[in-house]
Nucleic acid binder design. Sequence first.
RNA 1: GCUGGUGUAGCUCAGUUGGCAGAGCGAUUCACUCGUAAUGAAUAGGUCGGCGGUUCGAAUCCGCCCACCAGCUCCA
Length: 646
Amino acid sequence: MLKITLKDGSIVETEEGSRVIDVAKSISEGLARAALAGRVNGKLVGVTETLNADCSLDIVTFSDDEGKSIYRHTCSHILAQAVKNIFPTVKLAIGPSISNGFYYDFDFKTPITKEDFEKIEKEMQKIIKANLPIERIDVSKEKAIEFMREAGENYKIELIEELPDGEAITFYKQGDFTDLCRGPHLSSTGKIKAFKLTSLTGAYWKGNENNKMLSRIYGTAFDKKADMDAYLEAVEEAKRRDHNKIGRELGYFMTDENIGQGLPLLMPKGAKLFQILNRFVEDTEAERGYLMTRTPLMAKSDLYKISGHWDHYRDGMFVMGDEDKGEEVYALRPMTCPFQYTIYNNGLKSYRDLPLRYGETSTLFRNEASGEMHGLIRVRQFTISEGHLICMPSQLEQEFKGCLDLAQYMLKSFGLLEDVSYRFSKWDPKNPDKKFIDDPKEWAYAESEMKRILDHLGIKYTEAVGEAAFYGPKLDIQIKNVHGKEDTMITIQIDMFLAERFDMSYIDENGDKIRPYIIHRTSMGCYERTIALLIEKYAGALPTWLSPTQVRVLSLTDRTADVAKETCKKLATFGIRAETDVRGEKIGYKIREAQLEKVPYMLIIGDKEAEQELVSVRSRKDGDLGTMTILDFMMKIGKEVNDRVC
RNA sequence: GCUGGUGUAGCUCAGUUGGCAGAGCGAUUCACUCGUAAUGAAUAGGUCGGCGGUUCGAAUCCGCCCACCAGCUCCA
């Protein structure tokens, strides 16, 4: 008899050679039905795997992340089988599970369209109905390659060739369909209860843009149809928050084909929000000891040659002038560092001057590839709250901490603190020349310093190789948009090369010339992106403290138009952003418009209010709040704005 | 940049085998002076994304380009 230790620590006995599913059955019939896989001594296996020694065993169900992943991975194999049945000439690439679903990459002889989804889904349904058992087959590498050669699956051959020699290659077979796969899988195709194909896109073979573009079919699968419907509805709901749609509808920004890609125009509401954010950032930075700079938007190529941009980032810059014709070459700036470093270098610095914290509301230009632009999130010209902290080595941790604290203060003020994740972005030693300044010793040092600081601060982060800046490692504060795509919102970086390149120094207590440390950081990130994320977070109904218009005063009839205007003026005197609507429309109509424009408060002024010197207050969220004095209203909204209620 | 999709009034969209460019909402004007999410009537509004081609004739067919959307790749 074998001793099996379960998740809760209890031990069950079972005969040698019994399967994972048998153990599940011995616990309960319900668990056996829900069982998708087992985790034996921490390793995932299929439910039909036999147990041959004492071990620990977790029964994996759909409520586990691994369970979902196995379930959806099996669904991707069913997709591949269905596609192969309908299009026998198709070549198979890869088909993993991803968060919320799965995909499979195909090389079609003639491209398919979304119209084909119905046919494919029907075929998948047939395979599921047939409830084909899924079996694992172990073969040698040679045999595996031979098998795929006969099947003409050249992508699979390439994958197998990369697997280590001598180890068994696993295949999974369902009916007459066999696919290379690490597994594990569900025990049969009939286990899939609900699935849907969601989109059809292109994807490079092995994610390399020099390789062939394949067709990728995305789908999702759930163990209950109701859960899938709820998920699909949530995806639709998220799309309704898309800043790229409602940001345009609400009049925050627009684009124009004559102006160009990635060059959004902020309209009055967008510009107002920009100003609100900008004042908040600059005031907060001033409180925290930052000094403002204002530096040119372009410079001669000489500057970028010193900074390294010319070597590492030239493709991403807008360059003007032809060197070959003997012209002076200028480039719009892609970042602010070399400019602020130049300011630092103006005059000898003492250790008494440090730390120096420079901040700038800085407009940058980056020539992003044409397919990268996305609303306000990814653009070619943007403005960032950029700053550089120049400090002594002993001040590095303290200053880094200050940057993080500032970033978190910003996020909290915007109500986004819970929506972000932290990423420690490191260089890629395998790709040194082009992308990163090649100096392994310096990288090792800076990365270990940053890691030490992060661990000391207790930040939970993921590590990302190859995501560093060319001059140093970064702590990126990441946020997802409504499509689930992650972007960097705030970044804090240790720059260990540019001080050297710009020959920056300070004089220490002994009169020695010392190289300072530099932290390169944003306190809020780029304004355009922040505006986009705020619109998405609040579906356009921005917190009162951020709303371009906070109050709209509505006159009930022409008789109260002047009182409405007077009221608006009073509010403005107290710094409340108010406007009037004194058009000869019905009150219901004016309210509807203000609601649709997401104005936080409406003040309705009719004859009664005018006579009693009151205002009738309506909140966009809670509706009619009754009448109050204008002073009471100002106290109410003033508190909400001061507390930055989100 | 790559794959796929889209482009007709401010917005949402219709427009048949190539034959006079349409609707609803919005806008404007006039009337109504109204109590917490849509008052009525009239009027205006179009290089059919752009350029070129085929044709007696192009929103419609063909080519090139531009912009927008999803994904890939990229993101200092």
